Simulated scan of single mutants.
Amino acid sequence: MSVHKFIGELERVDSSLAEGTEAPPVLATFLVTTSVGAVDYVARLRAVLSAAIRTTNQADFDSETISETLIPDWFAEVTRGSVVVGRDHVASSGSQQYVSRRGEEPWELQDWLFCFDPQLRGWAWWDVTQLSNDAVVLWVDSSGEPAFPCEEFRWLAYACGAKNVDGPLLRRLSEWRKSHQDPAT
């Protein structure tokens, strides 16, 4: 993915997009059923994603480790590979769902952070829209690719409190714009 796709990404994470924002013609979506209220889920997701982007924007990807100081403690705890049950019930539940549904082990935090290398990452954050009290759609820029490396994104979605994550599915920009006009969003 071209590094220019990441311009403005942190601003999109930290606040909702304004109507009329210039966007790619096609976005990839993930439908997430949450184990907590959608508003709480989105706050958790934005907190972790913002911290990860801030951290990795300053990271030296040729080093052995990346700083973990900005990463929320609850996410860092559950992102320890063998830790599925932590103090944060929402993160623990999401981690268990990930293991159950994906047949994968929980991610190690350093491995997860290294996936944010802009030379390797196949997606850039775009937006989130709410479908209901327990469902959201996560929108990412995949450069129009229907299949792209995104398991670290899926882990993020689960660890923040997802019961299920479906996708990616490509959708037109007009669908994203319409989702901002629907009363449930």
Score class of each variant (00 low, 15 high):
Trp112Ala: 07
Leu131His: 12
Thr21His: 10
Pro118Cys: 01
Asn133Tyr: 14
Val140Lys: 03
Gly167Val: 02
Pro146Thr: 07
Glu151Ile: 03
Ser92Pro: 03
Asp73Arg: 14
Pro183Ile: 01
Ser100Tyr: 13
Val90Lys: 03
Arg177Phe: 03
Thr21Gly: 04
Ala43Lys: 15
Asp117Pro: 06
Trp107Thr: 04
Arg44Asn: 12
Glu11Cys: 06
Asn57Ile: 00
Asp14Gln: 15
Gln130Tyr: 06
Leu49Ile: 02
Ala76Asp: 01
Phe30Ile: 09
Leu131Ile: 13
Ala28Asp: 05
Glu105Trp: 13
Leu173Phe: 08
Val90Phe: 08
Thr129Leu: 00
Val39Lys: 14
Phe6Thr: 09
Ala43Ile: 13
Gln58Asp: 15
Pro168Lys: 11
Thr65Leu: 14
Arg121Gly: 01
Trp123Tyr: 15
Gly81Phe: 00
Ala47Cys: 02
Arg154Thr: 13
Ile53His: 06
Glu152Tyr: 06
Pro106Ser: 13
Gly94Cys: 05
Phe114Ala: 02
Ile66Asn: 08
Arg46His: 13
Leu170Pro: 00
Ala52Lys: 03
Ser142Ala: 15
Ser132Gly: 02
Trp139Cys: 08
Val99Ser: 03
Thr29Pro: 04
Glu64Cys: 07
Ala52Val: 14
Thr34Ala: 01
Ala147Trp: 07
Glu105Val: 14
Ile66Trp: 10
Gln181Val: 11
Leu173Asp: 12
Pro118Leu: 03
Arg154Leu: 08
Glu151Tyr: 02
Ala18Phe: 09
Glu77Ala: 13
Leu10Glu: 13
Val42Gln: 13
Ser179His: 03
Thr79Phe: 04
Pro24Tyr: 07
Trp123Phe: 15
Val36Met: 13
Arg171Cys: 12
Gln119His: 09
Ser93Glu: 15
Ser82Cys: 05
Glu145Pro: 08
Asp14Cys: 10
Val128Leu: 05
Asp73Ile: 08
Asp182Ile: 10
Trp112Leu: 10
Asp14His: 07
Asn164Glu: 10
Arg54Val: 13
Ala38Glu: 15
Ser143Lys: 11
Ser35Tyr: 01
Cys115Leu: 07
Ser93Asn: 12
Val83Phe: 09
Gly122Pro: 08
Ala52Asn: 10
Val83Glu: 11
Ala47Phe: 05
Ser16Ala: 12
Thr33Tyr: 10
Val3Gly: 06
Thr29Phe: 08
Asp73Thr: 14
